[in-house]
Design a binder for these strands. Structure first.
Length: 282
DNA sequence: ATCCAGGGAGAAG
DNA sequence: CTTCTCCATGGA
């Protein structure tokens, strides 16, 4: 097993995993097991450090996965010093959040699962998908399943995919899997600038403005993305006194307000609103 | 029982 | 162009 050791100052494992950007992880030992495609790692904070353990051949993958070359102290400080009090609080509480570099195809399928759904159910459905048509593997004595290929999803068929509990979204998933099998290369879209990338993603059935923004942010690391869901809409209404109701316009409002770091700030705000605010109000 | 969750497609206005 | 309705599912 190989270890990557990093300062915990801007790498809080729990916050990074629980802030809603990743669905495949589970508590284990001193921290969490994390799964991406067919790979796995064990991560935890200890003595002011963040530690990642993985197979030697996956070391480069997880170094990039956790975005370890980026200066998150700088990003968080800008937010903390901004003139928006909720952003200050959110960034101060969530300065250990890093935006992961996840696989774009895995993100695309995962966020199609997410529409009009909640995070615990999304996690459970994706786990079932992997169990139904992923490949069984073992890491540190724990059994897990890889994220399935489009081909495996397609051959699993309607009955099985619907067995994951995603209901009406089953058709979206199978249609996407079919088009990937037919040659649609999700990863190659990375060469497009963000606006065109987003437009291309929205042309996929089951992908609208919000899901496209999640995929550009979490699957292509485009920080000029700003997903607006029910939680961010609450932030907009309650903390920015917003009057707009069209979520696309709310996205544009925040992109204009926050600029190129909007995606990082969005994640601070989302995590704070969904998980932390209720804890502070007492 | 009704509402809500990291919304979007398609129809109607 | 904008707004409305319906969509499966399960936990609160």
């Amino acid at each position: 097993m190989e270890k990557i050791i990093f300062s915990a100052e801007n790498f809080n494992v729990k916050d990074t995993l629980e802030c809603g950007q990743i669905f495949r992880f589970r508590p284990f030992g001193k921290g969490f097991l994390v799964f991406s495609l067919d790979k796995s790692a064990y991560c935890y904070n200890e003595n002011g450090l963040a530690i990642i353990e993985c197979e030697p051949c996956d070391k480069d993958y997880f170094y990039n996965f956790f975005d370890l070359d980026r200066d998150y102290a700088f990003i968080a400080d800008l937010a903390i010093k901004s003139s928006f009090s909720t952003l200050q609080k959110s960034a101060s509480a969530g300065k250990g959040i890093r935006i992961l570099n996840q696989d774009s195809e895995e993100m695309l399928f995962s966020f199609i699962f997410s529409q009009n759904n909640n995070i615990p159910r999304i996690k459970s459905s994706i786990e079932k998908l992997c169990a139904f048509c992923g490949e069984k593997k073992c890491f540190m004595g724990v059994e897990y399943f890889t994220f399935p290929t489009a081909n495996a999803i397609l051959s699993a068929g309607k009955e099985i995919i619907n067995g994951t509990g995603i209901g009406y979204r089953t058709d979206y998933v199978l249609t996407l899997a079919q088009s990937i099998v037919n040659g649609f290369d999700v990863k190659s879209l990375n060469k497009l600038p963000t606006a065109q990338l987003r437009e291309k993603l929205i042309s996929i059935k089951g992908v609208g403005e919000k899901v496209a923004n999640c995929v550009t942010l979490f699957g292509y690391h485009r920080s000029d993305s700003f997903p607006v869901d029910t939680w961010i809409e609450k932030v907009y209404r309650e903390d920015f006194s917003g009057a707009l109701t069209d979520r696309k316009k709310i996205t544009e409002f925040f992109l204009h307000l926050f600029g190129e770091n909007a995606g990082y700030y969005q994640q601070y705000l989302f995590y704070y609103k969904r998980s932390l605010e209720k804890l502070e109000k007492r």
